[in-house]
Simulated assay, not measured.
Amino acid sequence: MGRHKPKKKRKGLKIFLIVLLVLVAGIVAYGYSIYHNLSKAANAVHSPIDRTPEVNRPSDLELSKKEPFSVLMLGVDEREGDKGRSDTMIVITVNPKSQSMEMLSIPRDTRVEIVGNGTVEKINHAYARGGVEMSMNTVEKFLDIPIDYYVKMNMEGFQEIVDAVGGVTVKNDLDFTQDGHHFAVGELNLDGKEALSYSRMRKNDARGDFGRQMRQRQVIQGVINKGANISALWKYDDVLKALSKNVETNISFDEMKSIQKNYADARHNLEQIQIEGSGATIDGLWYYVVPDEERVKVQNKLKEHLELK
């Protein structure tokens, strides 16, 4: 009887190895499927832009060397027959050494020089005048920092992205109702429609555009956190479809992989920056006017985070 035991052990080990091999093969195949679909989606949203920057870097950005970079996020309401305006303009700087991100919302009524158009008007007009290129150049000149990348998002389709990641969690500090949705004070779990309404409200907030910007940043951070969570892998197909339909960016798939590899931890330390100014009516139009000293203060903070000083 004793002589048969090793054979049984070997047979048990063989079965175990076969089962393990099947599982590994399945995981590898699933991983390849994810990789293939990620690559396909990245190529679908990739939209390179050829422009002459207003602010140049001392040398070309190298993500492999973990150099800090910047992104301009444009939330655009595009309607049929109308190019639309970028009602949401957020600059994000990412520094992997300090493992931190800084997020600056630029009020859409901010009075600036529209670079390439020869006018001084509201900053959200830059997109209507000259699309992504004019928006990037205008923001570069306003903040005096290089804008390395852009991400343009269709705000109407943003709710699809929120739903694809399974909703977002926010901490609301103001009781209000918007588009038939009631938002109580406290921690809220929002689906796509609710998140879009939550991030759009400004008329019933004494903080005006700043309150709206804060809510937008909360929703964006919620999407980033959910998208980076391992559970999102099981919903990746829905996420990729939503992104493919509603997002454009000049970040290539290889650059996305480098960012995921070298910069992912920065999302855990996000500082939100506010640029101070005041309202003024000029030539019959209302503007948000930022004093030069405030603009320089914000410029210096962003330059320091980008290690440009």
Rank of each mutant, 00 (worst) to 15 (best):
R10L: 14
R10Q: 06
R10D: 00
L13S: 03
I18P: 09
L20G: 04
L20K: 01
L21V: 08
V22H: 06
V24E: 01
G26W: 11
I27G: 08
I34T: 06
V45N: 03
P53K: 05
E54S: 15
V55M: 10
N56K: 15
P58A: 02
P68C: 10
S70H: 09
L72K: 02
L74I: 07
D77L: 11
G84V: 06
S86Y: 06
V91D: 08
N95H: 05
K97D: 09
S100R: 12
L104R: 11
I106P: 07
D109Q: 08
N117H: 14
N117D: 09
V120R: 03
V132D: 04
V132A: 05
V139C: 02
E140K: 05
I147K: 01
Y149T: 07
Y149R: 02
Y150I: 14
Y150V: 14
K152Y: 01
V162L: 00
V162G: 01
D163C: 01
T169L: 09
D173E: 12
H181P: 01
F183L: 00
K203Y: 14
R207L: 03
G211Y: 11
M214L: 13
R215S: 10
R215Q: 04
R217F: 01
V223Q: 02
G227K: 08
S231Y: 03
L233I: 15
W234G: 01
V239G: 02
K241S: 10
S244E: 05
V247L: 11
S258G: 13
A264D: 05
A266E: 10
H268T: 14
H268R: 14
N269F: 12
L270D: 09
E271T: 15
I282V: 07
G284L: 10
G284Q: 06
V289D: 06
R295C: 03
L302F: 07
K303F: 08
L306I: 06
